[in-house]
Every structure is written in C-alpha cells, then in structure tokens.
C-alpha cells in the first residue's frame, strides 16, 4: 500500500512548504529590527568613517575626498588638542572619585540595617533626575554671589571662587557635578555585587580567625568584588567620555576653551559651524576611545571569575 521507505526527494518536497513558512516567520520577526539596525547603526557607522575623509559641509551640494586632511588638521588644532586633553582629565577625575565613593557608600549602607532604604534612595536620586535641569540648578547653586555653595562657604568664613568662570577650576567643577550625578549608579551596582557574595564566605572567614571589619573586607569582600569593580570602572569611564549636557548648558566649553570636551567639539563643529567632515573626524576619535573601553569591558567580562 505504502512504499517501505519514502525517497528523500519526497521528504524534501514535503518540507518545502514548512521551510517557506518558517523562513517567513523568521523574516517577519527579525526583519524589522534587522532593517532598523542597518539604517540607524551600520550605515551611519560606515558613513561617519567615510565622511571623516571628506570636506562635506552640512547642506552643501557636493563633497570632495580629502584623505586624512581632517585628521591632520584636527591634531594640529589647539582647540581639539585642548578638548581631548580636557576630556581625559575629566574622565581621570570622575572615574576614581565616582567609583571610590560609590563603593564606600555601598559598603557603609550595607553595613547596617537602619535607614538603608533612605540612603539608597537619596544617593540614587541624582541618577534619575533630568541632568539638564540639574545642570541649571547647579549653575545657580554655583553662582559666585547668590549661589548656595558660596553662601555656605561664606557663612564659615571662606570666600568661594567663581566656579564656572575660573578657567583653572571650571573643569573640576564639572567633574564634581559628574561625580555627584554618577555615584548613586555605581553604588547600586556595587550593592548588587555585595549581595551576590555568599554569606558562608564571611562565616568561613570568621571561623578562620578573621575578626575585624578591615580584614573581612580584605580577605572576602574585595576579592569577591574585584570583577564588579573592574566592570564599574569601565562603565563609568565610558559614561564620562560622553560628558556633554553640563558643558553645553553651563559653560559652552568656556571660559577660553577651559571646559571644551570631545562631544561638545563635535557638536559645535558639526551642528553650529556645519563642518560635517571635520566633526566626523572628531567623532572617530571619540568612537576609538569608547570602543577601546568597551573592548576592555568585554575582555573583563570574559575573564569574570568568582561566582560571577
């Protein structure tokens, strides 16, 4: 009645309709996202690399291939060098402070029971608050005569500087705001890391004679937090490389380029002076730093050990 073994050809035929259906389903599900990834991620990345080799100006009808001219101009430009330098200073101030204070806050908050939720909420609040609005608040709070900071200093007999208009201070002022804004985020990441440490380890350490808090931290907490810390450091570095909002609204890179940072340079060259090709070259430098950091992060993640 039926053939003993259907030939493979027949099976192939039988599967054709199912194959088609499954391919269509995959296309319907992954297609839109894939198309958007191409339009908003892949194509722009290729474009930005190509644009950085041209003299394109926004709105211009034509563009010319200029090779590495934008890059040589950029590295010869005092403003750009200042911008890169400022960004690196900003990052190197924000990262240790924000990570260190975040870790400290996490350890202190987790060390006791009382007011734990209160502290966590308060420290996390700046992470949630719209940075641009808070930048405006800070600008007012740092006003040399009317601001909270200098009024408070005056009440203890210190004459505060002009935080945002003194070119020796402005970058550190911005870094301070950056730290204020990001400590809570790092704190919460560290808290998650702390909670992941098995309680047994502390008990084992106690049995082994580790008695004071510092020794506990050194023998158990810190080694276990190591991977989280590396991760937090890299994330903070990537985020602080992206400093823009505070600069754009509070200082516009001034005074005298003292607070010029990479993204602000890119923004003003690209969208205020419409030197798109040049801005693209700045973007490439920014991207190089961010990608290097992200690669570092991936590398750390791959090597993540200890109960990760």
């Amino acid at each position: 009645m039926t053939p003993l073994v259907k030939p493979a050809q027949d099976l192939h035929h039988a599967y054709r309709r199912r194959d088609l259906r499954e391919a269509l389903a995959a296309l319907a599900l992954a297609g839109p996202a894939s198309a958007l990834i191409f339009v908003f991620l892949i194509a722009p990345l290729v474009c930005i690399a190509l644009l950085s080799l041209t003299d394109y100006q926004l709105g211009a009808k034509a563009l010319r291939f200029v090779g590495l001219h934008n890059y040589s101009e950029m590295f010869a430009d005092r403003v750009f060098r200042r911008s890169l330098e400022n960004t690196l200073i900003y990052v190197s101030v924000v990262v240790p402070l924000s990570v260190g204070l975040g870790l400290g806050a996490a350890l202190l908050i987790e060390a006791g029971e009382s007011l734990r939720a209160f502290y966590r909420t308060v420290y996390f609040l700046p992470v949630m608050a719209t940075l641009i609005a808070m930048a405006i608040v800070w600008e007012f709070a740092l006003h040399p005569k009317l601001g909270l900071v200098n009024l408070a200093l005056k009440s203890v007999g210190i004459a505060g500087p002009d935080w945002l208009h003194d070119r020796h201070i402005v970058l550190y002022t911005l870094a301070g705001i950056g730290v204020w804004q990001s400590v809570g985020f790092n704190m919460v990441l560290f808290m998650a890391g702390l909670q992941a440490i098995p309680r047994d380890l502390y008990e084992a350490a106690a049995v082994d004679g580790v008695s004071n808090a510092w020794d506990r931290f050194r023998t158990v907490t810190w080694p276990m937090l190591g991977p989280v810390s590396l991760f937090v450091i890299v994330i903070t570095a990537i985020r602080s490389f992206q400093v823009f909002d505070t600069v754009q609204v509070m200082t516009k890179g001034g005074p005298n380029r003292a607070s010029e940072v990479l993204l602000y340079t890119m923004y003003s060259e690209g969208f205020e002076f419409f030197r798109t090709g040049y801005a693209a070259a700045v973007t490439m430098v920014f991207l190089a730093f961010v990608l290097a950091l992200a690669a570092l992060k991936t590398w750390f993640l791959d090597r993540r050990v200890h109960y990760a």
Partner: peptide
C-alpha cells in the same frame, strides 16, 4: 528560532552594544 543569518545578526547586536548614539548622530541627522 534557527534561521540563516542568525549568528551574523547576533554579532551585529553585540557590536551595536558598544556604539553610543553620539557616534551615529551626524549621519542620522
């Protein structure tokens, strides 16, 4: 699901994780 290009798509997703909006702003503009 298993479909052709799945690995490539996932690789692109992983790459995309590293790219901030700032880097693509000019071309999108």
């Amino acid at each position: 699901l298993r479909f052709r290009g799945r690995r490539a798509l996932f690789a692109v997703v992983l790459l995309g994780l590293l790219i901030p909006i700032h880097a693509t702003a000019i071309p999108i503009y």
